[in-house]
């Protein structure tokens, strides 16, 4: 297979399949959650569950000072990774063009120099995350094969994107094809690993926040 054919598969059939699995997989996962339902709370409320739920979806993004003090490196690294990853994904001009082509939506991006730097930062944050996972007793204890798989499929798109942009390791076309395939791998794997949290975290925060709001307690 030539690099061009490889690229066109990645951009065409490969992408369509990956996207289908991603969308249906995620919808299935969310359906599996929501279809379980929950009983209404019969206790007399002190506040609004809806307000509590919405508030918690936003506020839980920030750490509590007491916990931040114990794990500053892990928490800051978490922000660096999430911000870096999302910026590279959504604010890199060629990516925006792709979204525009597929969904008809576009928005301003960041200069490629900045994206390039953010990509490096994101790669380093992932390496640090792995180092922490391998050295912290709690993280080592909790980690399963699925955690390492999720780490790998998250790293690959960022890494191959960086290599492609900087014309490293492989000819550009081949590396771009590898990059797109790595994104497809991420999309295929995501619904079957903890990466489902990219959507379900809102449900989790909502449910805890709803209950807290109803009771009139912090969340």
């Amino acid at each position: 297979m030539t690099a061009d054919a490889f690229l066109s598969f990645a951009r065409g059939t490969g992408f369509d399949w990956a996207l289908t699995i991603f969308v249906f997989g995620m919808l299935l996962r969310l359906f599996e959650v929501l279809s379980l339902g929950r009983k209404p709370d019969l206790s007399e409320g002190r506040g609004s569950g809806v307000q509590g739920g919405l508030k918690t979806i936003v506020t839980r993004t920030l750490p509590r000072a007491a916990v931040f003090a114990r794990e500053p490196v892990r928490i800051i690294n978490g922000y660096v990774f999430h911000i870096g990853f999302l910026a590279v994904l959504f604010l890199y001009e060629p990516h925006i063009e792709l979204f525009d082509a597929k969904m008809g939506l576009s928005w301003p991006g960041l200069p490629t120099g900045i994206i390039n730097a953010l990509g490096v930062l994101t790669i380093f944050s992932l390496l640090l995350a792995l180092a922490l996972r391998l050295t912290s007793p709690v993280l080592k204890f909790l980690s399963t094969g699925s955690d390492y798989l999720a780490w790998l499929v998250t790293l690959l798109p960022v890494l191959t994107g960086y290599l492609a942009y900087n014309h490293m390791l492989l000819p550009y076309t081949a590396m771009l094809a590898v990059h797109i395939l790595s994104v497809e791998l991420l999309m295929v794997v995501a619904p079957f690993t903890k990466l489902t949290h990219m959507f379900s975290f809102m449900l989790a925060r909502w449910y805890q926040g709803y209950r807290a709001g109803h009771r009139g307690v912090e969340s």
Partner: peptide
């Protein structure tokens, strides 16, 4: 129920709960 399922779906094994 749905809340419990959403919690398990969302856990990323970050280990923060240990520190609490």
């Amino acid at each position: 129920d749905a809340p419990i399922a959403s919690f398990f779906s969302s856990c990323v094994h970050c280990g923060m709960c240990a520190d609490a």
